[in-house]
């Protein structure tokens, strides 16, 4: 009997000990980041011919490139502008227009048009690099114009 009582006491103690609530740990709640959605660009502005309009504009760019390689800058610029007129969201057309304007030594307009190209081609790393290279080139040339554009001392004397 005594044995039984001791066993019952032991069990009650065990129950008492295990039944105690655990001391709460004081940890700061983790800040939950809001559910962020990144809006998808509505239409790619790269060279891929995703619709006939873009294809027509790309073909026009190819014609313009031909003029550019021939040194027919006026015609090239006109053709690139037409490519933009066909598809105003073709970032490549703006890039080539900037290139044509740069070659025509129209630096400010070229930089402005290049901005547009950059905005449209932001998701195309190759093009972004190409745009950066052209921008540096334009800025460099603008800062140090080729000798033909610099006035000689004689010209300065004549004009002033």
């Amino acid at each position: 009997m005594r044995g039984f009582c001791l066993f019952a006491l032991f069990c009650s103690l065990c129950l008492l000990v295990t039944g105690c609530p655990k001391k709460p740990t004081l940890t700061k709640p983790k800040p939950r980041k809001p559910r962020v959605v990144r809006p998808v660009p509505p239409i790619p502005s790269g060279p891929e011919a995703l619709n006939p309009k873009r294809e027509a504009s790309q073909n026009m760019i190819r014609v313009g490139e031909h003029y550019l390689s021939e040194g027919n800058l006026d015609k090239a610029v006109q053709t690139f502008q037409e490519a933009i007129n066909i598809d105003t969201e073709n970032g490549v057309a703006y890039y080539y227009l900037a290139k044509g304007l740069y070659q025509k030594q129209n630096y400010d307009d070229a930089l402005g048009v290049l901005e547009k190209s950059e905005a449209l081609l932001a998701n195309y790393s190759d093009w972004v690099a190409e745009i950066k290279r052209l921008r540096n080139q334009i800025q460099e040339t603008k800062a140090n114009p080729p000798p033909s554009l610099q006035q000689t001392e004689y010209q300065k004397w004549i004009y002033h």
């Binding site: 809001p34 990144r38 509505p42 239409i43």
Partner: peptide, 22 residues
Amino acid sequence: TQDFPFPKNIIQVEIDPDTGME
């Protein structure tokens, strides 16, 4: 159907339109 473009640093977050909070 074409929508407006977004720059890369634009995000969308669900908010409570009455309080402006998340």
